[in-house]
Design a protein around this nucleic acid. Structure first.
Length: 571
RNA sequence: UGGGGUGUCGCCAAGUGGUAAGGCAGCUGGUUCUGAUCCAGCCAUUCCGAGGUUCAAAUCCUUGCACCCCAGCCA
């Protein structure tokens, strides 16, 4: 009896430990998280880790703490130059596809007015000032990691002047970059993020949500903590590179005028982002692959984007399981692609019906089988020890196709398949023995002749062992199909550390191989886009969601089956 | 050379002073009309290194070392 895939064993992680302690100490009575993407691109599997963490936490703790515990989807839309509604739509679709729903859809831009008020308050308190240094001067005054910065000459402007300037910034009296609002903290702080950080910049650019209402926009470090505070976020979870920003996150919240009014004092916690070998996860590289037309689009099945994985045939369940198996911790790490591949095989092993498909056909004529006879044979969709027990009929006739790779003119040791004089079992059908090899003038094998043993249908042959079983398809009943064989995006674990486009050299030229003369069993002629199958002995495939239609069958290989024979060959 | 982090099996990752979980990968063997699945077994005398405290240390102390992040008017 095959048990259904056990849920991955999950041990607690440091985030859950923190939450448990907070709850125990009475600091919170509910847990509110948020997933805060910037709507400037597509989500990838790295985001899935964050989504599973944030939404997963809300789901888990809601069971103990009841309603009120929730996870928001918030678009971090503070840079109008890069962001777009189009991306928001894609992100929402991806989150939903992964199986999550948000309790409230928000935008950082919802709070622009309030952020502005807080900024005026900061100015009145003498904690922020309008700086009129140029871009280059600001950079110069900031110092570097080993030398302290210098105070801006505008740092001591009066509250009145600052207020006046800031109000005029809002009114649009200045050009882009003419002034900025900065927090007045400490130019000598060892944490560079605390050297009078920029809070607002002037951008005469329309925003996809607020239109032309604003020409000054808050920076991430100012907008994020305020958004969290307003929404009552209890645990604000982000990735490791924001560790240095935490001090500023705290400074911002602690200096809000109505600090005490907020439902909870949010705290930021950082975890290690996901890294995967044999692929790329950086926004920049993904963008370059798409814009450089190295792939067909954001949903190219070679890509680790959510849209790409979906089209490739990955299930949401398998991705969620993957996220829980990789865990949540603080050490930078690179997860092995084999882990992801395991998760999808594990899922599909349970759910995908088995069918027969010949990818690279080699015709076999069964010389002792009656010319016009056709037998309808029973073929189970799932192995006998599975709970599901559906089956279909597959036609058997005199001419069939088998896989080219399942024949060897001169078989090597331990090759259990077809070769001159050798006998194999045809899955769900008879055993056949290869009696003759037909070649063209170049010596290529073009056809095989074989004889079948009528006594071997549903029974073992008498007095001999047949080791191999191969898949096949009846020549005159088979449907034609295009099959896209996908493999890992990169041919090396990690592209060279180099900047620019060097990683393109690491792109696996065989990440996509298109086969157009495939022969698939009759039943697949009626398959629908999005249906997943196991092509026996080969792998899991999905009928392409865009291109597959009746009469023009197109299947994508999701992942191969484990192949210990192939592995043994490599040694 | 400043500050913030991290170092436990090939890859993830538990472990919170009591004598190294689990998953993936790998290796053996068994079952099998998928060289798949499934099943059984193996896989860290040792936790970045060196000292120290302790009856007892991956866990505490000292001191090295390695790697990551911070000098966008990006997030």
């Amino acid at each position: 009896m095959t048990s259904s895939a056990p849920a991955p064993t999950k041990t607690g992680d440091f985030i859950r430990d923190i939450i448990d302690e907070d709850l125990k100490a009475g600091r919170h009575t509910k847990v509110i998280t948020r997933f805060p993407p910037e709507p400037n691109g597509f989500l990838h599997i790295g985001h899935a880790k964050s989504i599973c963490l944030n939404f997963g936490l809300a789901l888990e703790y809601r069971e103990k703490l009841g309603a009120g515990t929730r996870c928001h989807l918030r678009f971090d839309d503070t840079d109008p130059a890069k962001e777009d509604t189009l991306f928001e739509d894609g992100i929402q679709a991806d989150v939903r596809w992964l199986g999550f729903d948000w309790d409230g859809l928000y935008h950082a831009s919802d709070y622009f007015e309030q952020m502005y008020d807080y900024a005026e308050h900061l100015i009145k308190e003498g904690k922020a000032f309008v700086c009129s240094l140029t871009d280059a001067e600001i950079k110069e005054y900031r110092g570097n990691v080993t030398t302290p910065g210098k105070n801006s000459p505008y740092r001591d402007r009066s509250v009145e002047e600052n207020l006046d300037l800031f109000r005029r910034m809002r009114k649009g009296e200045f050009k882009d970059s003419e002034h900025v609002l900065r927090g007045k903290i400490d130019m000598a702080n060892a944490n560079m993020k605390m050297r009078d950080p920029m809070l607002y910049r002037i951008r005469h650019t329309a925003h996809h949500m607020t239109g032309d209402k604003w020409c000054i926009y808050p920076m991430y470090d100012y907008a994020h903590p305020i958004s969290d505070a307003i929404e009552g976020i209890t645990h604000s979870i982000c990735t490791l590179e924001f560790e240095n920003n935490r001090e500023l996150y705290d400074w911002t919240i602690d200096n809000l005028i109505d600090y005490a009014k907020f439902p909870s004092r949010p705290h930021q916690y950082e975890f290690a982002r996901l890294n995967l070998n044999y692929t790329v996860l950086s926004k920049r590289r993904l963008l370059e692959l798409v814009e450089g037309k190295h792939v067909s689009g954001w949903d190219d099945p070679r890509l680790p984007t959510i849209a790409g994985l979906r089209r490739r045939g990955y299930t949401p369940e398998s991705i969620r399981n993957f996220c829980t198996t990789v865990g949540v911790a603080k050490a930078n790490s690179v997860v092995d692609m084999a882990q992801l591949e395991f998760c999808i095989r594990d899922d599909l092993n349970q759910s995908a019906p088995r069918v027969l498909a010949v990818l690279k056909p080699l015709k076999v004529v069964i010389t002792n089988y009656p010319d016009d006879q056709v037998q309808e044979l029973d073929a189970a969709y799932f192995p006998p020890d599975f709970p599901k027990q559906a089956s279909r009929k597959i036609p058997f006739s005199k001419e069939i196709y088998v896989e080219q790779d399942d024949f060897m003119l001169e078989p090597i040791k331990d090759f259990h398949r077809l070769a001159p004089g050798k006998e194999v079992r045809l899955r769900y059908a008879y055993c056949i023995t290869c009696t003759n090899v037909v070649k063209d003038e170049d010596g290529n094998v073009t056809e095989l002749h074989a004889t079948y043993d009528p006594a071997t249908l549903g029974a073992n042959p008498e007095g001999r062992k047949v080791k191999g079983t191969i898949h096949w398809v009846s020549a005159k009943h088979a449907a034609n199909a295009e099959v896209r064989l996908y493999d890992r995006l990169l041919s090396v674990e990690a592209p060279p550390a180099g900047k620019d486009s060097e990683f393109l050299n690491a792109v696996n030229p065989n990440a996509l191989q298109v086969l157009t003369d495939c022969k698939v069993e009759r039943s697949l002629a009626e398959s629908k886009a999005g249906e997943r199958f196991q092509f026996e002995r080969q792998g899991y495939f999905i009928a392409d969601e865009k291109d597959h239609k009746p009469g023009a069958l197109v299947f994508n290989r999701i992942v191969t089956l484990k192949d210990s024979w192939a592995r043994a060959q490599k040694k």
